[in-house]
């Protein structure tokens, strides 16, 4: 068995036995090959179901929102950044968490298992930013010359080309909301698309309603998205959902020098006022 899996099981089992946590959230083998599913172990015996491999593509921070128990959670780089987001946004307290950090060398693409998935290929935070214990030595961080090359390519298009690009991206969307449900940022008790009074967006397969959903959902993630790729991992139609959030990530970095989820002591840029904030948009 993989030594990392072994180590994760050992740590998880110990903290459960010691009573430090009520449950540990990790990954278990999925129902079809090369997939995993989130798994909550509540007893030391259940810990044996944990695994760690190249297919742990979901983001476990999604499962700690508003929970009251003490939780052990397995966190790769992006999960840990979303845990930081959750702490900053008061969705969980730091004291409730025992974070088992796992250095990550990237997850596999779901169609080309030999290659890294798109967001992992440009990831510069492979090591957890917050943890109580590390399951292995940190890995070397990637040096990416131009992490936003894909966004720049879209920016260079003319407006009609941009529009048809995004129209094309979303034409297969079946509005299952798997992207939203997999996203650790999307924890609103009632999502704006589910509201019925007022009903902001139509509920059907109307093209404009689908576009509105994706456009607004992305904007709700501005300055918060860690590019963890859970949305795309969950999408059954292979929609490049991150095409929207990546633009916002690039803007956050350029306008505010901000990357989400790196520090629990810092407030996100859209939540604070700073006299140096860019304000050339206002007349």
């Amino acid at each position: 068995m993989d030594s990392l899996t072994q180590k994760i099981r050992e740590i998880a089992s110990n903290i459960l036995k010691e009573g430090r946590v009520d449950m540990v959230i990790g990954f278990a083998k999925g129902t079809i090959p090369m997939t995993t599913k989130p798994y909550m172990a509540r007893t030391p015996e259940q810990v044996e179901n944990f695994i760690w491999d190249k297919n742990c593509t979901l983001n476990l921070a999604n499962y700690i929102t508003g929970r009251k128990e003490k939780i052990g959670i397995i966190a790769k780089g992006c999960d840990s950044r979303n845990i930081v987001n959750h702490i900053v946004e008061n969705k969980i307290s730091r004291d409730q968490l025992y974070i088992i950090g796992v250095p990550c060398s990237g997850m596999a693409d779901k169609h080309n298992p030999d290659e890294l998935r798109d967001n992992c290929a440009t990831c510069t935070h492979r090591n957890p930013v917050i943890f109580d214990v590390m399951a292995a030595e940190p890995v070397e961080e990637q040096k990416i010359d131009d992490p936003f090359a894909d966004v720049k390519a879209v920016e260079a298009m003319d407006k009609d080309a941009k529009w048809s690009y995004f129209e094309g991206l979303l034409q297969n969307c079946i509005r299952c909301y798997a992207c939203r449900n997999a996203c650790p940022l999307c924890y609103c008790p009632t999502c704006f698309v589910d509201e019925s009074g007022p009903q902001w967006v139509g509920k059907g397969q109307n093209k404009t309603d689908i576009q509105t959903f994706h456009f607004l959902r992305a904007f709700h993630c501005a300055g918060r998205c860690t590019d963890c790729g859970a949305c795309e991992a969950a999408c059954p139609m292979d929609i490049h959902v991150r095409a929207f959030t990546r633009k916002l990530n690039k803007d956050s970095l350029e306008l505010f020098g901000w990357e989400a989820g790196l520090d629990i002591t810092k407030r996100p840029p859209l939540d604070t006022f700073n006299p140096d904030d860019p304000n050339d948009f206002i007349k």
Binding site: V151, V154, E155, M157, K159, D160, A161, K162, W163, S164, Y165, F166, F215, A218, F219, A222, F244, K247, L248, D251, F281
Partner: peptide, 12 residues
């Protein structure tokens, strides 16, 4: 938001 508008091909 205006930037995202522009990004999907709407006039800022």
């Amino acid at each position: 938001m205006a930037n995202l508008f522009e990004h999907i091909g709407m006039e800022k």
